[in-house]
Design a protein around this nucleic acid. Structure first.
Lengths: 248, 248
DNA sequence: GAACCACGATGCGTATACAATGGTTGCCAT
DNA sequence: ATGGCAACCATTGTATACGCATCGTGGTTC
């Protein structure tokens, strides 16, 4: 299935004669891959809030037509990662302060509420996998790879929710984590990342001890700490900077 | 494609001879309307779980091309109201027993958790609107209009969640209620509808008295009662374990 | 010199055409 | 008569073409 991989730089860019390159055997897989690429780029802050996502450009980059891109863009919009404005196209969502509060309140309720279930169901295998994720996150943090750390942190929280056994709530938590990543991009202070490096390890300890209550209260404090670290000042930009920057 | 559909003729006339049908006049609105039509039909059990939704048929019924229908179908699929199978098209989702459990567990957590906030923020105006909805629901129930009653019940729960002030969680509850409606269609006993007729009124009473705790426990019992009324027998069709039936 | 209007370009929304896939049916061979 | 194979048909997936709205730019007028 990789044979098609080189279409981006190949002759595909040309007009191509009777070139039917759309016959990828793994069409669905392809879309999923592209979706993940864009999603990851947003979560890792490689695409910053407000960045415009032109359909043509994306279509060319990924070697598919605009139709497929639109589908992906719509999915991202439904997850609130991109904003679709009627005649203006797509752009990376810039969460408002209200949305940020809603997201963290929701996480507070759902993630904490899930902890007892997780504590009850967690296996030693799960514990090992979680510790591994926490370790990698700490390493990324120490190496200064903020983007990577943010993604790993979101993945950790999502994974945790999956262990509860409730797929619906786990998917919801996954969306909330993605949005949190965006919120960090807008309101987070550089240098002071969301999750403390040892927090996740402590949490794993409580879960391993099957202490759901303790884990829940810890998670609550953990999330509160992240939220408190944000500087939600609702900085309205849009044009005014020029005056300020170049001196009036 | 067969005819112009007498939609916005008024403004079209002002534009002189735009023989093209005025699709743009209310394009987004139109999609929203169609989305609601299909969504309502599913929630009201006019479209039953398992029903196939052919793109061509829908496109013709609503007078738009398949492109628009696909967009709507995808949105419905993301809300788990329809299932999209790769080369087989769309059909109304038939929830599994596991999904049903997940959905009701999620409702238990979120709706109950929201009650304190609702009790704190509710206004007399809200109370009046809720009572009105409850009344209409009771009337529909008494009149034997089960479809209508189910939709009104879901709307009631969703409205309640909106009063919490958390738009994210409210939207999530809305989805859960829609899915619950599907679950009722599959596992519900005819004649014994989900919500007891007086339950909602009682709940409003607790909220009006700003007794969030009481409302939460009542909501918990309410949801438990609905779930208990289901006959989740997991009647599996779909290749009914020939192995098991005919011995391994 | 500034403001307003007009014209052109860019980019999205929709429709349509085409290709590929999976199901179904009919025929042939065993 | 039954099972397998092959061709056809129905339906989706993808790409492309076209129309329209909005935005930017330049010219003209006050």
């Amino acid at each position: 299935m990789n044979q098609r991989q080189s279409l981006a730089d190949g002759e595909a860019a040309g007009k191509a004669p009777p070139r039917r390159l759309g016959k990828n055997g793994d069409g669905a897989e392809r879309h999923e891959t592209i979706y993940r690429s864009i999603s990851d780029a947003i979560i890792e802050h490689r695409l910053k809030p407000g960045a415009r996502l032109r359909e043509d450009a994306l279509a060319e980059v990924f070697g598919i037509s605009r139709t497929g891109i639109r589908k992906i863009l719509q999915r991202l919009a439904m997850e609130q990662l991109v904003t679709l404005t009627p005649r203006r196209g797509a752009s990376v969502t810039r969460p408002t302060a209200d949305e940020a509060k809603d997201v963290f309140d929701a996480r507070q309720m759902v993630e904490c509420g899930l902890m007892p279930d997780v504590a009850r169901r967690i296996t030693s295998e799960d514990v090992r996998a979680l510790r591994d994720m926490a370790t990698r996150e700490r390493e990324a943090l120490r190496a200064g790879e903020q983007s990577r750390a943010i993604k790993l942190s979101a993945a950790f929280h999502e994974r945790l929710a999956q262990l509860s056994g409730n797929a619906t709530l786990a998917a919801f938590v996954g969306q909330l984590c993605s949005r949190s990543s965006l919120i960090l991009a807008v309101y987070g202070n550089p240098g002071h990342l969301g999750c403390e490096s040892h927090d996740h390890d402590d949490l794993i300890g409580y879960l391993e001890a099957r202490n759901g209550e303790r884990a829940a209260t810890f998670m609550s404090r953990h999330l509160k700490a992240i939220e408190a670290s944000l500087s939600i000042i609702e900085e309205e930009q849009e044009v005014p900077d020029l005056r300020n920057i170049f001196g009036a």
